[in-house]
Simulated assay, not measured.
Amino acid sequence: MRRLAPYQTGLWLAEYLDIRCQLCRRYRSTPQSKLLQYQEQSSQYKLSEPSIQTALKKRSFLTHIGSRANSCLSSGLLCAHCHNDMTWLPRPFEVDIAPSISLSIQASTYYEYPIRQAIRAFKHQEDMTKLSLLLHAIRQLPRPHGCHRNNSVIIAMPTTSQRLVKRGFDPVSILSAQLSKHWHIPLWQGVKRIDDTVSQQGLTRAERLSNLDNAFAIIEKPPKKRLLLFDDVSTTGASLQALARVFVSFEHARKINTKSYRNYHISAYALAHGNQM
Score class of each variant (00 low, 15 high):
115 I>Y: 02
49 E>W: 08
166 K>W: 02
118 A>L: 09
216 F>T: 01
59 R>I: 14
207 E>G: 04
150 N>W: 13
112 E>H: 15
143 R>V: 13
73 L>S: 07
62 L>V: 05
134 L>H: 02
270 A>K: 09
74 S>F: 11
235 T>W: 13
152 S>R: 11
156 A>V: 08
53 Q>C: 09
235 T>H: 06
217 A>G: 04
238 A>W: 00
225 K>V: 11
127 D>W: 08
88 W>R: 07
110 Y>S: 03
69 A>M: 12
149 R>K: 15
102 S>C: 05
129 T>I: 04
82 C>K: 01
269 Y>N: 10
210 S>K: 06
263 N>G: 04
264 Y>G: 03
138 I>R: 03
63 T>D: 12
174 I>N: 02
208 R>S: 13
243 L>V: 00
238 A>G: 00
260 S>Y: 09
264 Y>P: 00
183 W>K: 09
122 F>Y: 12
217 A>D: 13
20 R>F: 14
170 D>Q: 00
274 G>D: 15
130 K>H: 15
90 P>G: 05
246 V>S: 00
155 I>G: 00
224 K>C: 14
227 L>Y: 01
160 T>D: 01
142 P>C: 11
251 E>V: 09
14 A>Q: 10
195 D>N: 15
188 W>K: 08
27 Y>C: 03
221 K>T: 06
179 L>F: 01
131 L>I: 09
219 I>E: 09
218 I>C: 01
14 A>V: 10
56 L>M: 13
168 G>L: 04
140 Q>P: 05
104 S>M: 07
60 S>Y: 08
241 Q>F: 02
173 S>T: 08
187 L>N: 10
137 A>D: 13
238 A>N: 00
3 R>G: 11
258 T>F: 11
50 P>L: 07
69 A>K: 15
264 Y>Q: 07
231 D>H: 02
249 S>N: 12
161 S>L: 07
237 G>R: 10
162 Q>T: 08
157 M>E: 07
128 M>L: 08
71 S>T: 14
94 E>M: 13
42 S>W: 08
35 L>S: 08
186 P>S: 10
